[in-house]
Write a protein that binds this DNA or RNA. Sequence first.
DNA 1: CGAACAATTGATCCTCATCAAACCTTGTGG
DNA 2: CCACAAGGTTTGATGAGGATCAATTGTTCG
Lengths: 229, 229
Amino acid sequence: MPIDPLQLRHVSVFQNAPDEDLKLIAQNAIHRSMEEGEFFFFQGDPADYLYVLISGRAKLTQINSAGQQVNLRTISEWQLFGALGAVRENAVYPASAQAMEQCTALAIESTYLHELIQTRPYLSFDLMKLMTGYIQEIQERYRELATEKVERRLARTLLRLTAQMGVKNADGGIELTFTRQDLAEMSGTTLFTASRVLSEWEKRGLVESGRERVVIRNPHELVQIAEQE
Amino acid sequence: MPIDPLQLRHVSVFQNAPDEDLKLIAQNAIHRSMEEGEFFFFQGDPADYLYVLISGRAKLTQINSAGQQVNLRTISEWQLFGALGAVRENAVYPASAQAMEQCTALAIESTYLHELIQTRPYLSFDLMKLMTGYIQEIQERYRELATEKVERRLARTLLRLTAQMGVKNADGGIELTFTRQDLAEMSGTTLFTASRVLSEWEKRGLVESGRERVVIRNPHELVQIAEQE
DNA sequence: CGAACAATTGATCCTCATCAAACCTTGTGG
DNA sequence: CCACAAGGTTTGATGAGGATCAATTGTTCG
């Protein structure tokens, strides 16, 4: 089921695009759907396509030689990922992209966007904005990892997720659907430590947690933990 | 002493610029020189200028609320820094830039480059290349910090510095001029641990070290440490 | 020469990673 | 509908890797 091209306006990089461009892009895109756990691409593959996530959630991860994973970014609807290939010639993906649940996405050929960029100043401009934002975020996370303790990093992770994709549920809690493993990979720790910290917070009434789920009851106090002197 | 505008071609972002553009840029740039320890700008300042380092070395650092520093990047000659403001309106610098030795730099108004970008596709394109490279590097360092031990991270730091700015000296060693503190901030550890690791390596004949100085005697074995299973 | 700064080294302690075992939750198939 | 398997979570015990602090020893420079 093809999407309405105008929906592409949800993508930050396409927000200033004229309607015709959106149609062109949609025409040149391929639908892909992925089951939970499947990979859009692997770290090291040639970066031939870039993707726009239409539904579901995915994650960008890097893996080291010993097999430990790190989560670089969680991708939600209308976010772009794998866009490097459109900028650098013959690039390979620096990270893997994996569906966290059943997903659909549009795949656009890197070479196609590469051409489009040449004649559409707004496109490169908005791409740069996206990149600078991303640089800022990862720099900040790098600093946190180097200087802050686990508890604070986990608090920051939850707050970031809240801002990005938190859903307020019926009784006012903010619902996040992630396994302990996911949260650990985003915070730079192990699932055991993440579990312990969450248990402790649950005792203090800060959060409520269950299988693949954390509900934030008291965001204000989480901010305290994240920022405190 | 004004520089020859054509020298700006050394800057990766200007490598494809026509001569007239280089002249324009040079005309709109201000010379600044800095003593060791002085700051080009602080994290949080409005990002009104971007800089091209002409001589000396500088570092980009972030600092957390407790005052611990992290080194995000070491800047050497003809590298651009502080360029965010040219992309985002009303941006502030996400990091501080400090001279590591006596430096000279060209300061270009962000708004000026911002305008230039609008009409110079090559500029935004090369800026994007720079950014993607930078994203890749910091992602990699993020993963290392999350998953690798100090010894390996320090080895990687030295190898990266070797590639970026290593100088072969008379007897074949690669000379790097950094304090233990600097190396620690680049590797995500403390100066004490960095010192211990270097002492150990010195016993093994891998490096030779002195005040504000490390000489790499056996790069091959350093690679071993950095990559080993 | 002395002051300032960089580096080393030892002793101690704390945060977390690691491993093991048990427990819960969810979905599936007989 | 129950039993069981699979996968997620919790909790405890243990130990290693580094951070921290303190004291001492270089090194450089005015």
